[in-house]
Amino acid sequence: MSGFDRYLKDVLESATEEARRQGAATVEAEHLLLAIAAAGSPALDAAGLDQAAIRAALDREFAHSLATVGVSAAAFDLPPATPAKDRRLQPGASVRLALERTFVAAAGRDPQPAHLLLGILAAEVGIVPRALALAGFDRVALIARVHG
């Protein structure tokens, strides 16, 4: 297994755990981004996007998007559900797109971890770009920083 394959397998596993903890039906780009931050990313750290900052941005996006249709995430006050350890979570559409874009970013060379981050950051719509924008992070500047 190449270095990148090993990295991808590890962060996907960690993203799957994250998705399971959140009770998500699929593993999505936001879970992958949290896993990348947890694994350590110089570009994310340099931008001030540690895992806590990303989580806060994602929570804010969730509340904001629900609020646009008059729904309050805070009104959900049932005790948290026990996570489903048995549920087989598959990568969802946003992860599949991020992986396609990872290989585009690598441009025929062996992908590196930074290409995976670029694959996620390339999305112009969806939860991750909305969360970054709402939290005041400049996605395009972040892409430039990763290209560094």
Binding site: S65, L66, I127
Partner: peptide, 8 residues
């Protein structure tokens, strides 16, 4: 509106 659908 699309993000609201995803969040719901």
């Amino acid at each position: 509106a699309l993000a609201a659908v995803a969040a719901l």
